[in-house]
């Protein structure tokens, strides 16, 4: 497994993702600059968090036009596993590779805190082996993480099993208080119809080592993703 970690101007979780993939999970990893037109021989792609292009216009709106994103779209179309974390999730939404869009957090504040997310599906490129109902504790750090889609689109996402993570209580139950940013139906992460592209707002790569105060839950997700084999169409 060779994982490509994209780097945009303003990415700030690229080194964390690289570290988690390479040093914690023991996979081959390399950075791919946004101006590159190819992903080389990568068999998985991480679109990391940060503030690509200063979040100008909208979060992820400029990054989606970077040359490397055409290669990511092609890779995704062929079934290659792609994981978008935080700003990476927003970029994949802007690129049309993942559904929905992010609104400003309902409290209008930037949120940096630990949350609990409940795994809803184990049939995606990032959650194989994580039984539905599994609760993972991971940090969030975002100002625009309030997942939005029109109600009929939300119904379609639920029917197709594209809701992969929801914000919840430590026991996995849902409550308004446990939904930090006001996301529709407490959605913290989704996948595409092909189930090979997954995006989530929490940061698994920042919770990949038990000696960090964020704990080690994120490693389970990183390992699941890095074990994903491409579903070649």
């Amino acid at each position: 497994m060779k994982v490509a970690v994209l780097v945009f101007p303003g990415s700030n979780s690229d080194h964390d993702a690289y570290h988690a993939a390479k040093h914690v999970c023991g996979r081959e990893a390399r950075f791919v600059w946004h101006k590159e037109g190819s992903l080389g021989d990568a068999d998985a792609v991480i679109v990391p968090g940060g503030f690509s292009y200063g979040d100008y216009l909208r979060t992820g709106a400029i990054a989606r036009f970077a040359p490397v994103m055409a290669a990511v779209a092609e890779f995704a179309k062929k079934g290659g596993p792609v994981l978008g974390i935080c700003n990476g999730f927003q970029i994949l939404q802007e690129a049309g590779l993942l559904p929905g869009a992010m609104l400003r957090n309902r409290g209008v504040r930037f949120l940096s805190q630990l949350v609990h997310v409940r795994v809803e599906r184990d049939d995606t490129a990032a959650t194989a082996g994580l039984a539905p109902g599994t609760v993972l504790s991971m940090p969030i750090a975002h100002g625009e993480g309030n997942f939005f889609a029109e109600p009929d689109e939300l119904d379609r996402l639920e029917q197709r099993g594209q809701v992969v993570f929801r914000y919840g209580e430590p026991d996995g139950s849902l409550s308004d208080a446990a939904n930090p940013n006001g996301s529709a139906r407490a959605i913290a992460g989704v996948c595409n119809e092909g189930r090979n592209v997954v995006g989530l707002m929490p940061h698994p790569e920042r919770a990949s080592e038990p000696h960090l105060h964020h704990g080690g839950d994120g490693r389970r997700l990183m390992e699941a993703f890095l074990s994903a084999t491409a579903v070649r169409a």
Partner: peptide, 8 residues
């Protein structure tokens, strides 16, 4: 294409 996101 660019200045707005039609989803929202």
């Amino acid at each position: 294409r660019v200045l707005s996101n039609p989803v929202i």
